[in-house]
Design a binder for these strands. Structure first.
Lengths: 111, 111
DNA sequence: CGCGATACCTCGCCTGTCAATGTATATTTT
DNA sequence: AAAATATACATTGACAGGCGAGGTATCGCG
């Protein structure tokens, strides 16, 4: 991985939720989508992904159902809930704030 | 703390280095500076701060020396090294990349 | 003298990441 | 038909960074 993963830490859930906003999806597909989007410069590890799914489901932010085994192995689909949409919105505004804050704090100070 | 700390994770060292770029400083002062800069919306916890100092010193990114007890308790000053300046520069470019990446990945996807 | 501010430090827990490993099925290759 | 590859999900155990809680010491003020 080219990008230091500690910086990405804490964004896993938001990344997942972002992918579920428009349509239901499943782990493998989300992972592939991320790899394509970032052209390999960042990969969500499977273990990380699935533990995040567990967290989100337990928090009532997503729900899961089995389906769509037509093409290959069985898939567990996830759908975002109202809770999830709310969390996504919160995380997005938090991120905007955090971005500014980090920019300010990591700028060489002249005082 | 208002901002989710996991998002800030991994930036502690960069924040410290940023404060040492222009002048030597010590823990308490750096902490106070951060609190003022962010108007209380983010506080680097002492335990976090001092463990980060240890890490940075062990990595040869900063060096420490005792001094300046004139006003109160004794202070341990830190100075940035060439290694530290390099790490700072790397972290900054990483951050720019990561910012773009996160923005891209947490945007609701329309595909 | 007690209290608050200054200043530093450590222990142990918690949480998120991830390498390693395992399972099962479908498709493609040999 | 067997082997390899791709699809797809899941768990375990280790690791690292953040931080709550607690501790030490000095100085000035009332």
């Amino acid at each position: 991985m080219l990008i230091i993963s500690d910086v990405l830490r804490g964004h896993t859930e938001t990344i997942i939720l972002a992918h579920l906003i428009n349509k239901d999806s499943y782990g493998y597909e989300i992972n592939k989508a991320i790899q394509e989007k970032t052209q390999g410069s960042f990969e969500l590890k499977e273990a990380t992904l699935y533990t995040a799914f567990r967290r989100l489901e337990q928090a009532g932010c997503i729900i899961s159902y089995w389906g769509g085994e037509e093409t290959g192995a069985r898939r567990r689909y996830y759908a975002i809930t109202e809770n999830g949409k709310q969390l996504y919105a919160e995380n997005k505004t938090d991120w905007e704030k955090a971005k500014q804050l980090i920019d300010k704090l990591t700028g060489a100070c002249t005082n």
